[in-house]
């Protein structure tokens, strides 16, 4: 944690500490939040961080706890440590570079020269692989992602079962350019309107980070949030309120890129842990 904070300090970032209690806990269709008395625990500090960007901050990071209900498994805990950072005025490629640098800084601090998970291991210092989602689905699931539309569930299932296990083998993989429907908070790619500026960093088949060229158009953002919440209602029978303050702030937010990284997972892979509980000081019951 000290190494990560030192890295951000060296880059001139300011640490932000948004409250964990919120009215609108996130934007994701497939994530569940803890609810209490009409408020939620944040699933990520994204909306609050973007309000800070709108207020004029240019380089901010959050390192703290986030909460996602119903997530329990070797790689999931309902309370976990999230690292989230934003750069105003920077392209999302810059954030990809940050991601790789942070993984290396963490490995360096721990003294790990390999990342390992189950049968896989990868070298964090080797130059990373960069694949578009369409290239990865074509190579590993035999599916033409941009040619034939599939449901969000099918995307998620194919990614889990067939694509992810092939990523981050021997070296880090940066998966990028997701279909628009899988990137509620990302802006469209200038070169292809079917895909958006979203990337995920994989090591040993495990997703470590998720980043975006941030969407700053409040009208399109509302449309996509409403679509994500409608899908949430259809699949899970519940949806979250739209954060109107966030949408209002978006009109003032400069172009920016940002990313969220699962710190527990990074520590697991660097230390050879086989279950997230091994790296949690007080694992939840």
């Amino acid at each position: 944690m000290a190494a990560l904070r030192a890295w951000f300090a060296q880059q001139g970032f300011i640490e932000a500490e948004p409250g964990a209690l919120t009215r609108a806990p996130g934007a994701e269709t497939h994530i569940d939040a803890f609810e209490t008395r009409g408020l939620y625990l944040h699933t990520s500090p994204e909306f609050a961080m973007k309000k800070l960007l709108a207020a004029g901050e240019e380089k901010i990071f959050f390192l703290g706890k986030a909460y996602r209900a119903g997530e329990r498994g070797p790689l999931h805990a309902p309370e976990f440590t999230l690292l989230e950072w934003y750069r105003a005025g920077a392209p999302y490629e810059r954030i990809m570079e940050d991601c790789v640098a942070l993984v290396r800084a963490a490995c360096n601090a721990i003294g790990a020269d390999r990342l390992a998970w189950r049968d896989a291991n990868c070298d964090p210092y080797a130059e990373e692989e960069r694949l578009t989602a369409a290239e990865a689905f074509s190579a590993h699931a035999g599916h033409d992602l941009l040619g034939a539309a599939i449901s969000s569930e099918a995307f998620s299932r194919l990614l889990t079962a067939h694509v992810e296990p092939c990523l981050g083998q021997t070296r880090l993989t940066m998966l990028r350019e997701y279909p628009l429907s899988e990137a509620a908070l990302a802006r469209r790619c200038a070169h292809d309107p079917r895909v958006a500026e979203r990337f995920e960093l994989y090591a040993c088949g495990v997703e470590l980070a998720n980043g975006f060229g941030e969407l700053t158009d409040p009208v399109e953002q509302r449309t996509r949030l409403e679509a994500a919440m409608a899908e949430k209602l259809r699949v899970y029978g519940q949806s979250w309120p739209i954060d109107e303050d966030f949408l209002a702030a978006l009109a003032y937010m400069p172009p920016a890129s940002g990313c969220a990284l699962g710190v527990d997972r990074l520590v697991m892979l660097a230390s050879g842990a086989t279950h997230i509980d091994q790296v949690l000081w007080t694992p939840p019951p």
Binding site: G70, R72, G73, P74, L75, E153, S156, R157, L159, T160, A161, E164, G205, V206, E207
Partner: peptide, 11 residues
């Protein structure tokens, strides 16, 4: 859920 990284297969 133990064998796959997300609940997608269980779902």
């Amino acid at each position: 859920t133990a064998a796959f990284p997300t609940p997608a297969e269980a779902d």
